[in-house]
Deep mutational scan, measured.
Amino acid sequence: SPEVQIAILTEQINNLNEHLRVHKKDHHSRRGLLKMVGKRRRLLAYLRNKDVARYREIVEKLG
């Protein structure tokens, strides 16, 4: 489901952010981070168009 995919991506994004705080010059990982953020944004847009209630619920849960 989109909610699960968004939750997994959010966790991976948070982990990668911590990694990049330590390894500032790791541009390869930064590119992966940007791809993940874009994918999460697309999934959220899809969910917002399909079911606003589910969209609001996941945004509330994940912050």
Rank of each mutant, 00 (worst) to 15 (best):
E60R: 11
N17G: 06
V22M: 08
R31S: 07
N14G: 05
L34M: 11
E57V: 05
E11F: 08
E18A: 10
H19A: 05
I58E: 03
Q12K: 14
Q12T: 05
N49R: 12
K35C: 10
L9W: 03
L44I: 04
D26M: 03
H19G: 03
K35L: 12
Y46T: 10
K61F: 09
E11P: 01
R30L: 13
L43R: 00
L16V: 04
V4Q: 12
M36Q: 02
G63T: 12
L44T: 00
G38T: 12
R21T: 06
K25Y: 13
L34D: 05
G63A: 13
P2S: 05
K39G: 02
R42M: 08
N17Q: 14
D51Y: 02
N15H: 13
N17S: 14
H23I: 03
R42C: 11
S1V: 06
Y46G: 06
V59P: 01
P2M: 14
K25Q: 11
R40G: 02
N15G: 08
L16H: 02
P2W: 14
Y46L: 10
A53L: 08
R21H: 06
N15Y: 13
V22Q: 11
G63Q: 12
V4Y: 15
L43N: 00
R54P: 01
H28D: 13
R56G: 04
L33T: 01
G32E: 15
I8S: 06
N15A: 14
G38Y: 14
G38E: 15
E57R: 05
Q12Y: 11
L43V: 02
Y46W: 12
V22D: 11
G38M: 15
K35H: 08
A7W: 15
E3Y: 06
G38L: 14
L43T: 00
K25W: 15
K25H: 14
A45I: 09
R48Q: 06
A7Y: 15
Y55M: 01
R30Y: 13
K25L: 12
V4N: 12
M36F: 04
E18S: 08
N49F: 11
A45E: 13
H19S: 05
S1R: 08
D51L: 03
N14F: 07
N49M: 12
M36C: 05
V4W: 10
I13L: 02
R30T: 05
V59Y: 04
H23L: 03
L43Q: 01
K25T: 12
R54Q: 06
K50F: 13
L43E: 00
V37Y: 13
R54G: 05
R56L: 14
L9M: 04
Y55V: 02
S29W: 05
I58C: 06
M36D: 01
H28R: 12
Y55W: 15
R30N: 05
N14V: 05
R54L: 15
R31V: 12
R56D: 09
N49L: 13
L44F: 03
N17E: 11
S29L: 13
H27A: 11
A7I: 14
S29D: 04
R48K: 12
V37G: 01
K61C: 08
M36A: 14
K25S: 13
A45V: 10
I13C: 04
L20H: 03
V4T: 09
L34E: 08
R40F: 10
V37L: 14
T10P: 00
I58Y: 04
L44Y: 02
G63R: 13
K35I: 12
S1I: 06
K35Q: 11
G32A: 15
A45W: 13
K25D: 15
D26E: 04
A7T: 10
I13W: 01
V22Y: 10
K50R: 10
Y46C: 09
L33W: 05
L9P: 00
R41S: 11
D51W: 03
I6F: 03
H19M: 05
G63W: 15
R48S: 04
K61Q: 12
R21M: 07
I58W: 06
I6H: 01
K25E: 15
I6C: 03
R31I: 11
L20A: 02
N49K: 12
L20T: 02
Q12R: 13
P2D: 05
L9N: 01
V22G: 08
V59D: 01
G63M: 14
S29A: 15
N49S: 11
N15W: 13
I8M: 12
E18V: 07
T10K: 01
I8Q: 10
Q12A: 11
T10V: 07
L47N: 00
I6Y: 02
V59S: 03
G63E: 11
N49C: 13
L16Q: 02
R42E: 12
H19N: 03
A53F: 08
L33C: 08
M36G: 02
N49V: 13
H28F: 07
L62V: 03
L16W: 04
N15R: 15
V37N: 02
G38P: 00
K35N: 09
I13R: 00
H28W: 08
R42G: 05
N15T: 12
N17C: 15
R40P: 01
K24A: 10
E60Q: 08
K24V: 11
R41N: 14
G63V: 13
A45H: 10
E11K: 07
G38V: 14
N49Q: 12
Q12F: 08
H27P: 08
L62A: 03
V59A: 04
E3V: 05
Y55G: 01
D26N: 04
E3R: 01
Y46P: 00
Y55T: 01
E57I: 06
V37M: 13
